[in-house]
Amino acid sequence: MYQIDPTRTDLIEEFDRAPGGPHSAELKQVIMRLRTGPMTERFIVVCTRRGREWAVGRMPTERGKPVALVEGVVFDDYDNAARLVFRLRWQAATGQALG
């Protein structure tokens, strides 16, 4: 299994520049790793008004429980929600907090 090198914070910067790509080969590996973790407690995007407003949430540990929204976070741009999801998953996968 591919492991994320937590020192490669340049890849976070690359993602921030273009969340929708194109991405370098190394960043593609990181994204795939972040997309294929467990479904439970996965950070996700929640669209609260179509095409206009997005939040970030975290999947619950079982069926029937609500998605927990990250408090105080609302974006008017999908890409910003995607950037936050990337960073939160990076932190969860590497165990290292980002500034």
Partner: peptide, 28 residues
């Protein structure tokens, strides 16, 4: 989108739920 671990890998997007999806998650 809320049950399949590899759905994101197939669809190549971060899981993005709307209000309806979030409602279904709470109401099996």
């Amino acid at each position: 989108q809320v049950h399949e671990r590899f759905a994101e890998a197939a669809e190549v997007f971060w899981t993005t739920l709307d209000r309806g999806d979030a409602f279904l998650q709470e109401h099996p």
